[in-house]
């Protein structure tokens, strides 16, 4: 029963990748650049919640709420301090991508400086998993998958049914027309960053409940998130979800054949294959011209 277990492990990892993919994809759709900062916000979410809960001894749910507020504030500050001035001087996408790398390194360096390198945990008692048809899964892992799915449904409803969501999609389709129609793009940029940071932050909190907290976990996660959104098709919320699960499952089945250290490499081989053969992804709407020159 090894294969079903690997698939379930893949779904658990995929639920996290999918959230980060959605976080990444949202910014890419509205602002058209690749932003790595969700990787840092992922880590900040986990560590902020940890600080409130364990270091300050606050109630877990209050800590969670405060942690998410910290993440959202960080997201907006990153936009205001770094990306807005860059966009004002019409910096190219690569400068923005590099700046986001800078933001990522700066913030994760800061987390390391504040919290130190030793491994931390929320210290939840280790529970014995349920065993269904030989597959072992813990309660926390089930919660993780369910929360991720609920967030995706909520995000999809938000983007299609609410006024803000519709405005965001209008900006994504054509920012110039959207601003002539009276949509204040700057304001919506901040809203985008709040939603995107919350998605990354929640993903970080979820994974740190399940595993330990590690300041270095953000990098691999954002790369998987990017891979998931490219594979799914950059620019659509459901595609990010499917891309996330796909990457999670493929890399977990992959370690059946290869040493587990190759996990990251597997995801990137898939990424490069997709960039070359199907850059618009499985469900993408982008034309080839937008991707290759």
């Amino acid at each position: 029963m090894l294969l079903p277990q690997l698939i379930v492990n893949g779904i658990i990892a995929g639920a996290i990748y999918a959230l980060v993919a959605a976080s990444f994809s949202l910014i890419f759709n509205i602002l058209k650049f690749m932003d790595l900062s969700p990787g840092a916000l992922f880590v900040i979410g986990a560590f902020a919640t940890y600080a409130f809960n364990i270091l300050f001894g606050m109630n877990f749910f209050i800590s969670l709420l405060l942690g998410l507020i910290v993440v959202a504030i960080c997201g907006v500050l990153i936009n205001l301090i770094v990306y807005t001035p860059l966009r004002k001087r019409k910096a190219d996408n690569f400068s923005l991508l590099l700046a986001s790398f800078g933001v990522f390194l700066f913030l994760t360096g800061m987390i390391l400086l504040i919290f130190g390198a030793e491994v931390k945990s929320f210290g939840f008692p280790i529970e014995k998993g349920y065993e269904i048809l030989g597959i072992v899964i813990t309660k926390l892992q089930i919660i993780l998958i369910i929360v991720s799915l609920i967030l995706f449904v909520a995000l999809q409803l938000f983007m299609t049914k609410t006024k803000i969501g519709k405005a965001l999609r209008a900006i994504s389709d054509n920012p110039r027309i959207a601003s002539t129609l009276g949509i204040n793009t700057e304001k919506f940029t901040n809203i985008t960053f709040i939603i995107s940071s919350l998605l990354a932050g929640i993903a970080g909190i979820l994974i740190s409940l399940e595993q330990n907290l590690d300041h270095a976990m953000g990098f691999s996660v954002i790369l998987k998130g990017i891979t998931a959104s490219v594979v799914g098709g950059i620019g659509s919320v459901p595609a990010a979800l499917i891309g996330g699960f796909l990457i999670g499952i493929v890399e977990n089945i992959g370690i059946w054949f290869l040493p587990s250290g190759f996990k990251d490499a597997i995801a990137f081989v898939i990424l490069i294959i997709f960039l070359l053969i199907r850059p618009k992804g499985l469900f993408g709407v982008k034309t080839r011209e937008e991707v290759s020159g």
Partner: peptide, 11 residues
Amino acid sequence: TTKLKGDYLAI
């Protein structure tokens, strides 16, 4: 990869 555009090439 050189066929890819800017940030796709970067990734």
